[in-house]
Design a protein around this nucleic acid. Sequence first.
DNA 1: TTCATTTCTTGTCCTAGTTCAATGCATGCG
DNA 2: CGCATGCATTGAACTAGGACAAGAAATGAA
Lengths: 193, 193
Amino acid sequence: MYSQINKNISRYVTFEPKELEIFNSLLEYKTVPKKTILLHEGEMCNFEAFVIKGCVRKYYIDANGFEVILQFAIENAWISDISFSIYEDKPSRVYIETLEDCEFFMFSPDSKEELFVKAPKFERAFRILMQRNLAVTQERLFYTISKTATEKYLEFLEHYPTLSQRVAQHYIASYLGISAEFLSKIRTKIAKH
Amino acid sequence: MYSQINKNISRYVTFEPKELEIFNSLLEYKTVPKKTILLHEGEMCNFEAFVIKGCVRKYYIDANGFEVILQFAIENAWISDISFSIYEDKPSRVYIETLEDCEFFMFSPDSKEELFVKAPKFERAFRILMQRNLAVTQERLFYTISKTATEKYLEFLEHYPTLSQRVAQHYIASYLGISAEFLSKIRTKIAKH
DNA sequence: TTCATTTCTTGTCCTAGTTCAATGCATGCG
DNA sequence: CGCATGCATTGAACTAGGACAAGAAATGAA
């Protein structure tokens, strides 16, 4: 049950079995049905969720009421609005919603503090996780600015090969920053080579 | 001399004078003339630089040879390509260049390791710095996707009030992801109310 | 001070992507 | 099973912003 998450957290730092045990004891297993909103705008985000199974999206709602998807998380990914709310006591501006029935390990800020006290090496692992997250976001910003819609879509397919089968097209359009109609046009053009 | 950087690093974690002394002893002071490239694409980024004075830009070059500015750093900001190169041994895809004569404190990966051993509380401070960085990048991604060029420019002016006086317009255009010509048109339109 | 180089502005034409609307297609639910 | 709601597709008209070109203004080096 814990093998997935232990593998994930050990990717850049090696832990003793004992340390992993402490880590695992601080996680809360949770199943959530699809279309459940885990975090509303204006709430404090008091969790980091590791996706064991399922698919989640994180999104903003812009001034005109349009959703902009910032992140999809599938198996073995973390999702949270860690960036602001946990450490700054600012309410979140994002929503987090399950798109499929999900299984999570939920990790609370308190548990995280406890973990860092009991096994300080985890501080490092979580810092590196954060760095990778930053790198990915930065890369996405670059793509958003400098690539055409078609290029972005092809890149998306390559990067998330399973996701285009699992989530609705208009979510992918929202992630790419284009209209659902235009994505549809791109797809028909690609299909005809 | 160290007051600026100590204030910066103490923003979310409180340190003993002794700890700050260790930190300061590991920094290297450096002055760099304007238009100097600190990091070329393909190199390893082996520093994190704290800007004491001056202005720096970090940018990608896209497939068509266009520069896309990811970040400006002015006084009291950190700049690095920390996200990839330091921890993954991957060469950097970005350039970092001074736009004005600059004073820095340079912080190397080795010094950072040494610091974390001698004063582990810094691990936490640097993790939080990273989180803020992620939050800012995420916010920018949202703006890039969901706002018009005019809105982005006005937001930029509000957020970096001094920067529009200090750097060339076409750099700002590149940061906003629009052409320099179009920014000029936006500016004349704004000027006429 | 002068000349050269870079930066900014303005105009014209062009295109990638949007908006709106209509239609057919799934799929989930009573 | 039938119906309703959401989803994808397509087309037509529109627009934000880009590309190119040429001139004006600013900066800087000698």
